[in-house]
Simulated scan of single mutants.
Amino acid sequence: MIKFFRRVRQRLLTDNKFSKYLIYAIGEIILVVIGILLALSLNNWKEDLANQGEEERILSGLKQEFEINLAEIIRNIKLNTGTKESTIALILQIRSEDPFANSRYIDSLLNEVYMFGSFDAQTGLVNEVISSGKLSIIRDSELRDRLTAVSGLLDNLEEDYVIRSDYYMYHIIPYTSKYFSLVNQNNFMDFSSWSDTYETFKLNESPFKPKYEEIDLLLFENLIATHKLNNDFVNLDEYDLKKFYMQTLEIINANLESEK
């Protein structure tokens, strides 16, 4: 009987020792897991901080890029609005009783019809963000969508620029060259919209007389009316792009404000 109790006691001691080892091992595992989780949390925290810093840098760059583009598109809208107004004035002059009574006025209108502008957008940072895969750093989904959409708007505008320019160069210039002294437009040329310092050399008026009597007024009106229409599409695209830039800047500014 004594031997039996001794064996039971020995077993209990052995089982107790094993339980202690088991508890110790489980504790070690738990500590390792906690350590891994803490390391992952710290790494994620550092990564989040880095992404927040990168997002702020991207947003600040986008703000500058969009502000430059907005200012430039506003400048072009002004130029192309002037072109539209000059085409209307020229059409009204063509329809008047004596269209070419004032040759200087005609020359000034022909010059203004030509002084249309085109917009060359800055897209360096937008392209970098998209091509580098950094688009995901921007948390605002609407802003991400806008950054991917801007290229489509610019492509559409560029297409209308080409249509307008090609039509003017291949149809209006060849026609007006037959009947007008185009060199006289030089007296009304103004490059201040492009440069603060450049000054063009003013040529004397042409010694050659224009051939007003040979002009087909209907054809002339149609040419200018088509140029007006082409310019209207440009104006429409530019107004849409101006609105797009303004709305996107509001979103960018709101995101920058939330970063503070």
Results as ranks from 00 to 15, higher is better:
M1W: 10
V8Y: 10
N16Y: 15
N16R: 14
S19G: 10
S19T: 13
A25R: 03
G27R: 05
V32M: 04
I34R: 07
I36A: 08
L37T: 09
L37F: 15
S41G: 13
N44Y: 10
N44H: 11
E47V: 06
D48N: 13
N51K: 14
K63T: 12
Q64N: 13
Q64G: 10
F66H: 05
F66V: 05
E67R: 11
I74N: 10
N76M: 03
K78D: 12
N80T: 01
T81P: 00
G82K: 02
S86T: 06
A89R: 13
E97P: 00
E112M: 14
E112K: 14
V113Y: 05
F116E: 03
G117R: 04
S118H: 15
F119I: 08
A121C: 07
A121I: 04
E128S: 15
I130M: 02
S131F: 01
K134G: 07
L135E: 12
L135H: 04
D140R: 01
E142D: 12
L143G: 08
L143M: 08
R146H: 01
T148K: 06
S151L: 08
S151A: 10
L157H: 06
L157S: 11
D160R: 09
Y161M: 10
R164Y: 06
D166Q: 14
Y167E: 06
Y170L: 11
Y175P: 11
F180W: 02
F180C: 05
L182T: 07
N186V: 03
N186S: 04
N187P: 00
N187R: 09
S193P: 00
S193Q: 03
D196K: 12
D196Y: 09
Y198Q: 03
T200D: 08
K202H: 04
F208D: 07
F208W: 03
P210D: 11
Y212V: 14
E213L: 10
F220T: 08
T226D: 04
K228R: 13
N230T: 04
N230P: 02
D232V: 02
D237E: 11
D237A: 03
E238A: 05
D240Q: 13
L241W: 06
M246E: 10
T248I: 02
L249W: 02
E250G: 15
I251R: 11
I252C: 10
N253E: 15
N253D: 15
N255H: 04
E257K: 12
E259N: 01
E259K: 02
K260M: 03
